[in-house]
Write a protein that binds this DNA or RNA. Structure first.
Lengths: 340, 340
DNA sequence: TTGTACGCGTTATCAC
DNA sequence: GTGATAACGCGTACAA
C-alpha cells in the first residue's frame, strides 16, 4: 500500500538496509553480484528514495521558491510562461523543483520567502521582474537567503543576476531598420527611470542611431508613456502627426508596438514597427520583435543559484531580432499571401 | 545561524519541547500563562515549524504537482498564467504549495507524477489541458494517486473534474450577435473530435442558432481547421468569399478569431467576430471574447483535490462574454476614439 | 563488505 | 498540564 522503503528493498534482496543505501550512494563499495540483486529488487518494487526523509537528513529541500504574480491585464502576455518552463526544465537537470508561492508586493514576497526558508521548504529563490530600486535583493541578502535575479537593479549588483542585453536588442532593431533604408527612426517606451529595462532599451535605440550618425535632431522622435495598448496608439498618432514623421519606430514592448501598429493600419500609414519580447501577440500581428533567449536565461539562473560559489555571478545574454512583415522593406505586404 | 527548532523555543521559554508542540497543535491543553510565555518565545525567535519534519512525521507533503508545458508557439498565450496563479492562491489558503515539473507527453507525465508521489514529494496532482481520450485520468486512477482535472475527457468521468461550460459560452456569443441583428452567424473551430473543448464549443454554437431558429441552412457556415492564426485567416477568407457570406462569426479560440479579424481588416469587410478565452491578445485587438472564470476554477480544483471525500466531484462553471468593438452593433468603430 | 546505532525536527501516545 | 519515549525514512560514522 504505502510506498516501499529501503527496509522493504533490503528484505526483498536479502540484505541489510545499509547495503541498499550503499548501492544508491556509494555503489563502488558493494560487490557487483550483490548490487545487481539489490538493483533488481529496487526495480521490481519501484522503490524511490523518500525526498522528505532525504531533505530532513540533509537539511536541504532541493526546492526553489518562485513567486507567481497575477497577470497584468493591460499588458500583453509576457515571456513569463516560457521563463517558468525554462526554470523547471533547468531545475530538473539539477534534481531541484520549483515551489510556487504568491505575495501582494515585493516586501511581502521577502517576508514569504523568509517564512518558507525558515520552514525548510525552499533552499533559495528566483527573482523575476526586478525594478530599478528593488527591495528584494538587499532584503534577501541581509537574511542570507540564496537567490538569483532575472534583471539588474539600478545600482547594486552585489548579488547573482542574469539579464538580457536590452540595449543590444533595440540597437539591433535600429540596425535592421537602417539596413532597410530608414533614416528617421522613432522610439516609444516607458518614461525614463520607470524601469531599468525601459531605460536600457531607450539607451540601445540612442546608441543605434548614433552608430549611423542619425542621432542629431531625433529628440522629437523619442516618446514615452505607460505600457499599454492605448498609450502605444496615442504615441503612434503623435508620431504620424509630426511635420517630419518617422518612417520607422522601435517600441520598448510588444504592447506599445501593437498600439502603434493599430494606428498605422487604421490610417493606412507607412511606418515600420519593431516590438520587444516576441510575445505570441507579436506573431499574431506579424510584428517584428526582439526575442529574449529565455531558455538560456533559465538555465543560467539555476546554475547561478545552485552552482556552489558564494561569490555573486553576473551574466548578460544577447537577444535576437525576429523579423516579420511589420518591418519588412516593402511595408505592410499581405502577411499570409492569400490575396494580391 | 540555523533556523530555530522547537527545542530552542522550549529552552527560551523554560519548558519542554512537548509543551511547545502542544501550544501550536493543541493550545487548549496548556495553561494560558505558559502559553503566552511560549508564544512570546516563538515570536522572539521567529520560529517556524519545519515543514520537512512535519511532512515526514505526517507522511503528507502538502505539495501539489503541476506539469508546466512549453508554450505552443503558434497558439496565442492561453489562460495558463491566470490559472497557475489562481491555483497557487487557492493552495495557499489550504496551506499547500504547487510543485512544478516537466514532462515530454501525457504518458511521461503520469510516470513523473508516480515517481514524485512515491518519493513523497507530492500528495496529488492537478491536470491541465485534458484531451478527449486523455490517458492521464485512467493512469492515475489505477495508481491511486489523487488528482483533479481541468476539463472532461470524452467518456470517462469517474474522477474529480472542474470545467467551463464551453457550450454555454459560444451559445451566449450567438445570443449576443443575434441581439445585434445578425442572422447568418458562422463558426470556426477545431475539427470535430480533435478536442473535447472544441466539440463543446461547436455544440454551443449550434444550440444557440437553433434557439433562434437559425440552424437551417447553416452547414456552409461551419468551418474547421487547426488552431493557428493562418488557419483563422484562411477560414475567414472562405467565409467572405461565399455567395451568401455570414455577417458574424463565432471562433473557438482567440487565435482563430485573430486570424479572421486580420482578413476582415485587410479587406475592409463587415463581419462581427467573437473569440474565446479572453486572452491579452483579444484585448489588444479589441476582440470580443468569452472569458473563463479561471480564478473560480482554481479554487474549485484545489477544493476538489484536497476536500476530503473519496467520491469524485464534478463542477461546471459558467463563462462570461466580454463585449468589445469587434462585435459591437456598429462595426469596426474607432476602438480608441482618437480620430473620426 | 555488512550490520548497528544515532540524529535530522516534529508530533502522538502515554505516564506523571 | 506537563514531560519522557517512540516513530516517520534516510544516511553515515562506527564497529564487527
Amino acid at each position: 500500500m504505502h510506498p516501499p522503503t529501503v527496509e522493504d528493498v533490503a528484505r526483498a534482496a536479502g540484505v541489510s538496509r545499509q547495503t541498499v543505501s550503499n548501492v544508491l550512494n556509494a555503489p563502488e563499495r558493494v560487490r557487483p553480484e550483490t548490487r545487481q540483486r539489490v538493483e533488481a529488487a529496487i526495480d521490481q518494487l519501484g522503490y524511490r528514495p523518500n525526498r522528505v526523509a532525504q531533505s530532513l537528513r540533509a537539511s536541504t529541500s532541493r526546492m526553489i521558491g518562485y513567486r507567481i504574480e497575477p497577470m497584468h491585464p493591460q499588458s500583453l502576455s509576457s515571456i513569463h510562461d516560457r521563463f517558468l518552463h525554462a526554470l523547471a526544465e533547468a531545475g530538473r537537470a539539477a534534481d531541484h523543483h520549483l515551489l510556487l508561492f504568491t505575495a501582494n508586493d515585493p516586501e511581502d514576497e521577502v517576508a514569504n520567502v523568509q517564512a518558507l526558508h525558515r520552514a525548510g521548504a525552499i533552499d533559495g529563490v528566483i527573482l523575476y521582474g526586478i525594478s530599478t530600486a528593488d527591495p528584494r535583493p538587499p532584503g534577501l541578502r541581509q537574511l542570507r537567503i540564496p537567490f538569483a535575479a532575472f534583471g539588474r537593479t539600478g545600482a547594486d549588483s552585489a548579488h547573482s543576476w542574469v539579464d538580457i542585453d536590452n540595449a543590444a536588442g533595440t540597437a539591433a532593431a535600429v540596425d535592421h531598420l537602417v539596413a532597410g533604408g530608414h533614416r528617421r527612426i522613432a522610439f516609444v517606451g516607458y518614461p525614463e527611470g520607470a524601469a531599468a529595462v525601459g531605460d536600457r532599451r531607450a539607451e540601445g535605440w540612442r546608441t543605434g542611431l548614433d552608430r549611423h550618425g542619425l542621432l542629431a535632431g531625433s529628440r522629437h522622435l523619442d516618446l514615452r508613456g505607460e505600457d499599454s495598448l492605448a498609450t502605444g496608439a496615442w504615441l503612434g498618432e503623435a508620431l504620424l502627426d509630426h511635420p517630419t514623421p518617422p518612417t520607422a519606430v522601435v517600441a520598448a514592448t510588444d504592447t506599445l508596438a501593437a498600439g502603434v501598429l493599430r494606428v498605422v493600419q487604421r490610417r493606412g500609414a507607412r511606418l515600420a514597427v519593431v516590438g520587444f519580447d516576441d510575445t505570441p501577440t507579436a506573431a499574431a500581428l506579424d510584428l517584428s520583435s526582439v526575442r529574449q533567449p529565455i531558455e538560456a536565461v533559465g538555465h543560467a539562473m539555476i546554475r547561478a543559484l545552485l552552482g556552489g560559489g558564494t561569490e555573486p555571478t553576473a551574466q548578460l545574454l544577447p537577444p535576437e531580432l525576429i523579423v516579420r512583415a511589420s518591418s519588412a522593406p516593402q511595408l505592410n505586404p499581405d502577411p499570409l499571401g492569400a490575396t494580391p
